[in-house]
Design a protein around this nucleic acid. Structure first.
Length: 271
DNA sequence: CGCCAGGCCTGCACGC
DNA sequence: TGCGTGCAGGCCTGGC
């Protein structure tokens, strides 16, 4: 589930129940995530107060003052709030038990997510240190994309998903924003000019902003009760729509493999 | 059964 | 030589 908008939606949903709140305890049920969960994490967290929840790309940053709890949801991870009476199920690897009685619970069937602890500056962590600008911050724009792709011979679709160029663009939003910008996913990144990168950067900003706003509408269900996305609207224009009619020109959308990921596009609208 | 899935790090080969 | 870059592999489980 988690693309950047879902991670941001999760962050906002957790905020009122976690930020400024005292941690009573933490429970680690499985240490075997993409990286091993630190052994003494429960002891480190107990008695701390979460000062705020930040986000860098798709990493959530729980600032505890003396260090930061960094959580990534991987492919299948989900964080939500439960009451103490809700029994953990299979794949519920981690609980943050707040003094209020609320529990922030991590469920991650595929275990591609991770939980690490960083003392001091969280952004100095090796996982975060070299990540590119946030797509919704002011330092990200078409000029940045243009400047940093002059030697990139790879396909723009793959280059866009490189978190060192720009943070948090996954497979879905790479597909969606290239369609919106009218750029063929196979185009070599270095052959795209400044003007087209400006269109692309604007589309990235607009698409993510809209998706976060839409995520917000299903937020209460998502974070508050059973963690299910419910009737979360997936009005993707191209993603997972191979063979279906392009919303813009009605031509059938196509699919191809780039890297080991599926790409969806319109051969008529994207050049 | 085989194949696919919203991520992303690592290691290797290659070219400048 | 030392990089930046491109690409495949791998971590897991579940659903079709």
């Amino acid at each position: 589930m988690p693309e950047l908008p879902e991670v941001e939606t999760t962050r906002r949903g957790l905020l009122p129940h976690v930020e400024g709140k005292l941690i009573k305890a933490a429970v680690v049920r499985s240490r075997a995530l993409r990286l091993p969960v630190p052994r003494n994490l429960a002891r480190t967290l107990a008695g701390s107060t979460v000062r705020n929840i930040g986000r860098r790309g798709k990493y959530l940053l729980f600032d505890c003052g003396h260090g930061t709890l960094i959580i990534h949801l991987g492919m299948s991870g989900r964080l939500w709030l439960v009451n103490a009476t809700v029994q953990p199920q299979r794949h519920d690897h981690f609980d943050l038990v707040m003094a209020s009685g609320k529990i922030m619970r991590l469920r991650d069937p595929r275990r591609f997510g991770l939980i690490v602890w960083q003392r001091g500056d969280a952004l100095a962590h090796p996982l975060l240190r070299d990540i590119g600008p946030e797509p919704l911050e002011a330092d990200f724009d078409g000029a940045w994309l243009y400047r940093n792709t002059r030697k990139r011979s790879g396909a723009i679709k793959n280059v866009l998903m490189d978190s060192h160029l720009v943070a948090g663009i996954g497979n879905i939003y790479a597909n969606e924003t290239l369609f919106s910008a009218g750029i063929h996913p196979g185009t070599q990144a270095q052959r795209i000019g400044l003007a087209r990168y400006q269109v692309l950067a604007d589309e990235i900003r607009a698409t993510l902003t809209r998706a976060i706003a839409a995520g917000g509408s299903s937020l209460r269900d998502y974070v508050g009760s059973d963690g299910q996305a419910g009737n979360f609207q997936k009005n993707f224009k191209v993603y997972d729509r191979a063979g279906a009619a392009c919303f813009r020109c009605a031509a059938p959308l196509r699919m191809l493999r780039q890297g080991q990921r599926s790409t969806f596009y319109c051969a008529r609208c994207q050049k």
